[in-house]
Design a protein around this nucleic acid. Sequence first.
DNA 1: TTGACTTTTATGTTCATGCTTAATATTTTA
DNA 2: TAAAATATTAAGCATGAACATAAAAGTCAA
Lengths: 239, 239
Amino acid sequence: MGNESHSRNSSQPTWMGVRDAIHTRILRRDYGPGARLPRDEELAGEFGCARTTVQRAMRDLQDRGLIERRRKGGTWVRHHPLTRATFEIPVIRQEVEEKGCTYGYQLVHQAVAMPPLEVQANFGNWPTEPMLQVQALHLADHRPYMYEDRWLCLQTVPALGTVDLSRQSANEWLVHHQHYDRCDLRLYAHKVTAHEAGLMGVASAEAVLVLERTTWIESRLITSVRTLTRPDYQLLATT
Amino acid sequence: MGNESHSRNSSQPTWMGVRDAIHTRILRRDYGPGARLPRDEELAGEFGCARTTVQRAMRDLQDRGLIERRRKGGTWVRHHPLTRATFEIPVIRQEVEEKGCTYGYQLVHQAVAMPPLEVQANFGNWPTEPMLQVQALHLADHRPYMYEDRWLCLQTVPALGTVDLSRQSANEWLVHHQHYDRCDLRLYAHKVTAHEAGLMGVASAEAVLVLERTTWIESRLITSVRTLTRPDYQLLATT
DNA sequence: TTGACTTTTATGTTCATGCTTAATATTTTA
DNA sequence: TAAAATATTAAGCATGAACATAAAAGTCAA
């Protein structure tokens, strides 16, 4: 079962070896759900390694949602081990080109306006101000691949006022000129409207995955974007 | 901007302090996209800390997808910092009860059969065998909350043959009796069929989020489940 | 030029030790 | 008895030093 595969040799356990050993014990219910694990020091003694090594193993198990650690409290096996899925949200051009397609871009609409309430809902306390709305299509081999409806904060990124968004996507400009340090994400299914269906070239009322992203830099709003994918789009998780 | 908030004091930077300092430099393009960072040792010298501390900071930045590290190669700022979103897939009963609703369960269909090709697609090399199919509804306050279409591997978990799945959901039984060490996940939008719409109590052709999960234990298939959520269901990411 | 070997190098891992800190138990006080 | 002060505990953090390892660069020969 490979629970020894992470040790250099049997007398010198690596942190992965320790992790796997403890993981196995949890799976085998030697340490059952809700149970308290021995102190790091004891385990270190048992495995014949330093406490640092046990700690490294424990951090990994904690990151995977298997255990919970509290100062003084100790270490506990979670009652319901979390299933934590990590998706990588791709940079669109890159994703398209990696599929061997030609990337294209087409501006649909651009205007300064007041964001509607459902968009403002993503902004928390950020004051309501007119923003730059940009609707655009991302193309793969000249066919619609993704539609985005974006609101840009000109207060935070004034430079955007001077960018020609009919030639370059806001997405791309931002990637190159404006980093963020916070990103809120929301994912849901959506029945496309007739207008959206026309733009995307899909049947009306088709179900598509929507990815809503709001990014910030140093607590200042940058942009909020709602992305419609194609009906067959799938997001794969790497656990 | 809080980049000093993680230091105990200015002369003794913690690993979070070092991390934030480097992060800031990346945001400010002192270390631009694709740039190579100084060696850990140099940075340690600069920050006046041990190499271990720099390493801890670096690992965090790496986990966040901001940098890439290679042995011998060194440390590099990623050209396109990854947006890595982490979702927590909830245990259904728990999720329902946390919303203050009563959890309920209702078996819809159960039979041993050959899984169709689109289900087998999730199984990789796993040999094609008859499996136990279970279709069931999860209820919140007696109203449909989630519909699952599940295939269970009786070879890997023979005990399932003796469980009364009209009283207890397979989900719940598995959580309590069968852990997994691998979980493949797939997420997409789906237009509900008339049959599904009837079961879920939603309008026909409504768009819903589908969560497909396949779990394994020690390289042996446990189960593959396709979960339909309600149309208004949203998955929130914690970045 | 190509392929096989060797050296170099920056990250990766482990260790022993000491201190810090948050949470919990215990004791004291009102 | 409850609230406040205090002690204890187990994880968290930092250090310096040593060794491991994979990948890159360099060397050499066919």
